[in-house]
Amino acid sequence: MARELFGTGKILIGVIHLLPLPGSPRWNGNLKSVMNRAKMEAGILQDGGAQGVIVENFGDSPFRTGRVDPETVAAMTLAVEHVRGAVSIPVGINMLRNDAISALGVAVATGSEFIRVNVHYGVMATDEGIVEGEAHETTRRRRSLNADVQILADVLVKHAEPMGQKDIGLVAQETTRRALADGLIVSGPATGQPTNSFDVSVVRRAVPDGFVLVGSGINDHNVWRILEHADGAIVGTSLKKEGIVTNPVDPERVSRLAEIFASMP
């Protein structure tokens, strides 16, 4: 069902890395500038050929490991509403570091189509501390809200090390079959770092009929190799001006990568 959200061919989902939100260490007091940049980047991504966008509170680092603050939820809801008003493609939410319940709430309130959950199933040692998956709670909350929101879950997420099962194929199967994720994301070790194409192939073999995305490190030079066994990718860093994650989205980079995606079988 997740595959049906985005259409045919290789899927390009662009990332909108929000500027710092209220309550975060680098919040500058200007919410209007956050909203304006989010709207602008959403438009650039759609016009450049992306089939979806995902909104992240990326500027709020260092991140909490549990529930985010109410002001973060409020600002994220406002930002996503601005993005939805600017595009007609599917919109997703990633509430960093791992607040799937708040992300789900924002998605329901704004009519968004999907969420990304960094640790949906299992336990990971991360930069911010120990993060435990809450698939039991997220899936029950989704059911109680009668929400048609797709859960795209990372498999052994970046910036983290597993505290249990390390077999990425088995984790992929359990995240889908036991934790009820609608799609899987395979990433490299850190933001902007290339995903290991072998890891993608292992996940594909483990869930041959599953929806699999690459979650980091895709660029013009490695896209053909890394995407061979994936349905598409979530791309952030390489779409920014000069390839720097904190810079604004670059229209030329978006169009160039989207053209490559469109040419792939």
Rank of each mutant, 00 (worst) to 15 (best):
I115N: 06
M124F: 02
L213R: 02
A86D: 09
H159R: 09
V123K: 01
A74W: 08
V214A: 11
E174P: 00
S112N: 07
V108H: 07
A107D: 08
D69H: 09
G111C: 00
L152Y: 02
Q193L: 10
E174F: 08
T138P: 03
F198P: 01
G129V: 13
G188W: 06
L96T: 02
T176Y: 11
A103Q: 01
V203P: 08
E81G: 11
F114E: 00
Y121I: 00
V87Q: 06
R178F: 13
I89H: 05
Y121V: 00
D99A: 07
S112R: 05
E81K: 12
V149M: 11
V73P: 01
R143H: 06
T110K: 02
T195A: 15
Y121S: 06
V117I: 14
M124K: 03
L78V: 12
L104C: 00
A100E: 09
V131S: 05
L184D: 07
T72A: 07
G188S: 13
M124R: 03
G169K: 02
G133L: 04
G188E: 11
I115V: 15
A125M: 15
D199R: 07
I185Q: 03
Q150I: 08
S197F: 12
E132N: 09
Q150W: 00
H120Q: 06
D127L: 09
E174D: 11
V91I: 05
L156G: 03
R142Y: 01
A181Y: 04
S112W: 02
V108P: 03
G111E: 04
M95K: 04
T139E: 13
R140Y: 05
V203L: 09
D182N: 14
P194E: 10
S187K: 07
P90L: 00
N196Q: 12
V119I: 09
H82K: 10
F211I: 10
S112C: 04
V157F: 07
Q165E: 15
V119N: 03
D148M: 02
A206D: 06
E134P: 00
P70M: 07
A179H: 06
I89G: 09
F114N: 06
G129E: 12
N146H: 14
R204Q: 12
L184H: 08
Y121H: 15
P208T: 04
N94G: 07
H159W: 03
L145C: 08
L170I: 12
G188N: 12
G122M: 03
